[in-house]
Design a protein around this nucleic acid. Sequence first.
DNA 1: CTCAAATTGTTGTAAAAACAACATAATTTC
DNA 2: GAAATTATGTTGTTTTTACAACAATTTGAG
Lengths: 223, 223
Amino acid sequence: MENFSEIKKTKIFDQINEFDMQAMAHCFKIKFRNYNKNDYIISQGEPTEDVVMILKGGAKVESIDIFGDISILTKLKAGDIYGIENNDINNEGYSDNLIATENTLAMFLNRHRLFTPCQNKCKRHELIVKNLVKLIVERNIELNEKLKLMSKKNIREKVLTYLYNQSKKANSQYFDLPFNKTELANYLSVDRSALSTTLSKLRAEGIIDFDKKHYYVKKYQDI
Amino acid sequence: MENFSEIKKTKIFDQINEFDMQAMAHCFKIKFRNYNKNDYIISQGEPTEDVVMILKGGAKVESIDIFGDISILTKLKAGDIYGIENNDINNEGYSDNLIATENTLAMFLNRHRLFTPCQNKCKRHELIVKNLVKLIVERNIELNEKLKLMSKKNIREKVLTYLYNQSKKANSQYFDLPFNKTELANYLSVDRSALSTTLSKLRAEGIIDFDKKHYYVKKYQDI
DNA sequence: CTCAAATTGTTGTAAAAACAACATAATTTC
DNA sequence: GAAATTATGTTGTTTTTACAACAATTTGAG
């Protein structure tokens, strides 16, 4: 099957064999499309028929608010999914833009079909739904975590909390971030130069260390 | 059935009759408990066996971070659910405290049973799961919305965006907030007096008006 | 109804963050 | 590999926010 090797790599479909996938392809009305860097995969306001999964490459979720200000919400990589939280009731279309950040292969799945048991009763459907729910729940946990981060009252606490969280996830005092400094500032919603100053200060105090995207944090109890 | 009238009022169980509920009570290992104001319903770190639903009264979700600082994440009212996003894999226990803000009746449902089709095949189970998924998705949308709010660069944009969102939800320029000013400041993670100053200024400019928990916003295009 | 507690609005001051501008380093592109 | 672009760290200035203290008002408990 077309692109099956890429599909197989994703969390959601990793337990599915090619034969079942073939059946599901029809059931979910799967479509594929390739994008170049900076292409719009989805535009704000478009009807929310599909759920998009990135199979190769990457994309960013970009939001434009009522004041016209643009902010980048998340970055999607292969295996990540977009549009799952849209529902048919709230049919004002997708709430954000989805833009390829590099050459990207995307798979479209019909949302309605995804969540409704199909006539064919393709046996793996239930597993997929379960995986999808798990994915949303995980995203909720992530969002909760980020919200806690955002409520910190200064940059120092924001960045320290973020680094501790990442360290905990990596299960090591040494870990890599998926962001460069500019992107990190963006992610934490703070000014880049202010973040830079804070990071420098923390390094001078010996609480953290970093080089490019590599970071180290001292154990909390040692501070 | 005990407390059935309260259960019936909730979004998740509104289509369930008492007979089915009786079956599910066993299936979900339902338990009830009453709490006084300020009682802990759930403590951070407790094993996450159950999902809690508030049937009467209210509760607040309170988070304590690594610095020991306390912040209130959300307020739950009758019909709201807590603990759904916890999973058995991430078994570090509940991540926050859940505290009754008034006399409260809570219902506990076994999370595992909730998401796993039961042997009894109680016919409404599938509907409940569907409702739960809907709830999780709704929370996801809410979280996304709040996150966008929190990334605004100043208090003025934060509060204006929040008020516009609420106005849109209420489908009216006149609407009530669930918060007093102190709670609103808390929700937006800003200083209360600074929020007060901003609100006064916005009122002086004629962009908004308010009295207690009643608010009015001018249409955006009129600003 | 009365008193205590909580809420609200205001102001001045201190602290923090955003902003702008720049030099240097690193990365990308052709 | 050279040139252009992007990333990074630093500093000074401006703006915004937090903080503290207070008076006035509202709420709630007994």
